[in-house]
Design a protein around this nucleic acid. Sequence first.
DNA 1: TGAAATAATGTAAACGGTTACAGTAACCGT
DNA 2: ACGGTTACTGTAACCGTTTACATTATTTCA
Lengths: 343, 343
Amino acid sequence: MTTMSRRSSSVTIRDVARKAGVSVATVSRYINQNANVSPEVSERLGLVLSEMKYVPHAAARNLASRKTRVIGLLLNNLHNDFFVPLLNGVEAVVRKRGYNLIIATYHADSRTEMPPPIGPHNTDGLLVFSDGLFDEDLVNLSAIGFPMVLVHRTPPPDLKIPSVTVENKEITHKLIEHLIKDHGKRRILFMRGPVHQEDSIHREAGYISALQANGIAFDENLILNGDYERDIAYQAVSKFLENGKHVEFDAVFTGDDDAAIGVLRALHQFGYQIPERIAVIGFDDLGFAPFLNPPLTTVRAPTEAVGRIATERLFDLLDNQTSDEVTMLSTEIIFRRSCGCNN
Amino acid sequence: MTTMSRRSSSVTIRDVARKAGVSVATVSRYINQNANVSPEVSERLGLVLSEMKYVPHAAARNLASRKTRVIGLLLNNLHNDFFVPLLNGVEAVVRKRGYNLIIATYHADSRTEMPPPIGPHNTDGLLVFSDGLFDEDLVNLSAIGFPMVLVHRTPPPDLKIPSVTVENKEITHKLIEHLIKDHGKRRILFMRGPVHQEDSIHREAGYISALQANGIAFDENLILNGDYERDIAYQAVSKFLENGKHVEFDAVFTGDDDAAIGVLRALHQFGYQIPERIAVIGFDDLGFAPFLNPPLTTVRAPTEAVGRIATERLFDLLDNQTSDEVTMLSTEIIFRRSCGCNN
DNA sequence: TGAAATAATGTAAACGGTTACAGTAACCGT
DNA sequence: ACGGTTACTGTAACCGTTTACATTATTTCA
């Protein structure tokens, strides 16, 4: 019969120490392997530990060591298949290092003066995807030297935060030029992502520079907002088409593959032939892209690698304090049927 | 000039208390709103808190209160677009409750006698997806009354763990029967998911019962393993077809839409007409399904709702201790072109 | 051989919150 | 006027680890 008082039912380090006939410090050293423990004691502890099924209490450990062994991934939302490869890359590295991963969303709505749900108080470092955090928050965290890596976003002026992203502008330029030169398209609709999103901005820049380079006037009526979301893209295109007097167009560049799905649905419903009448191209080369109807011409972005590398950078920060500035992974056009090519 | 010793740089509840001229207990009560604090003090604290940008240290809080305010989601892997809607449902509820979400993978490989990365030591409750945890672990956790909800899996015998899943067998029976009766298919390949995965087992049961009900002999040569993964499914079908003497078949039921992508790629590469020569059907109705080539006939599974409901159940457990047994959400066939239907 | 370095262990003070317990002041009903 | 609530606040123990510091035994080597 034991007094339970406030004690939880689980085994503590003191229980282990008592049973093994050593001090708690020795048990701690054995577990963390950060100081010598004699072979005999080690062996004894090994047995006692597995016998008692001891698992260190994370909070106590975190409090004492001022480390959480958790890294956080901050996103604005999870509404895109794009996140599967990203999460995969992140999770693989996090697990390999024996850390845990918290994922959280944070966006304008939740910004009613709530602080971000994850940060120095519950993680050792943060992966910030795109607009997952506001500049102001970045400045604050940066000021206290909190380890962060930006993903698909470059740091605001004056902030030295490592960043991992992909090449957007040049590849988009090439892709649009392909539409113009090889398929004779001249009225190309551009479907933006979220307005301030960096990838979207660079893709738009590539789009515009390709038009200019080919003597085509920029027409702002050919810009739509798709927000990188299937449904929003679908709605946007539908509304555009419903208005019978919409401007003419012969191609659509959707900022990402997920939005491309919505665009395809809308175009199909209105009976347009793709790619004969309207060519469609995307970005990301998500797994389903080769199987869309028609197969989607798109840009292959190494998303899993982005996740992996960003996480490794973050651990570099945790280990060495050294940081590697901006990493831009290269991208590649994948020609399929939806642009008018035949394979 | 302050002595920093082991002190972290962040402001603690004691700093706040001192500045506001009250005790730490009062600050704690104000923050947690779990006891009366006079209006004057409240006002003062409100100011001081925002001025000092105080954020409670999670570990200290967890240690003292024996709550982590974190729930965990345990998966075997993240290799499927299926997880996007699931994560969405889970994350939405978790955030609404002001909790954090840890996601972790745990599978046979990592089982080299490592305990699961998340559990009672760092979460208040667990969502266990499919085979994210072994029966043995379920038994242990269940024995100490640790809050858990199973997702796409029912509890092992004798364990009372709430479970949220979808209807598999009947709907699969109907779907296969549709192939047989409406499209005259008789040699239907079934592509399994992971061998012991419950959905896969029930889908197989539905497949077999439909065959029996229609006087078609079960042929084990028509069973392939796809593991719910695009690439594995692709490899499996390719290898099957490469062997020139493979058994004849006129349809494929892939256990899920993601594997269906791999199947479609393989069939296309070998030049089969879909659905004229080979019909293909999937399961889940992922976002891309209507846009595959051809549009995929599949079963709509309310995956986001599964995530949402499972998480709500888990919070019920944390709140009331009451649990709702097995919840099975209904599913529905979505007829598209890949089975031979025309719309 | 003796001093110094090294190895193995223990003691106890943090870490930053929560909360049981106790105390004081104001209020209430008779 | 007085005992009994009620509202608010403070003191200090406690949550389960890590780790600085102290201690002792053992090895190394001039």
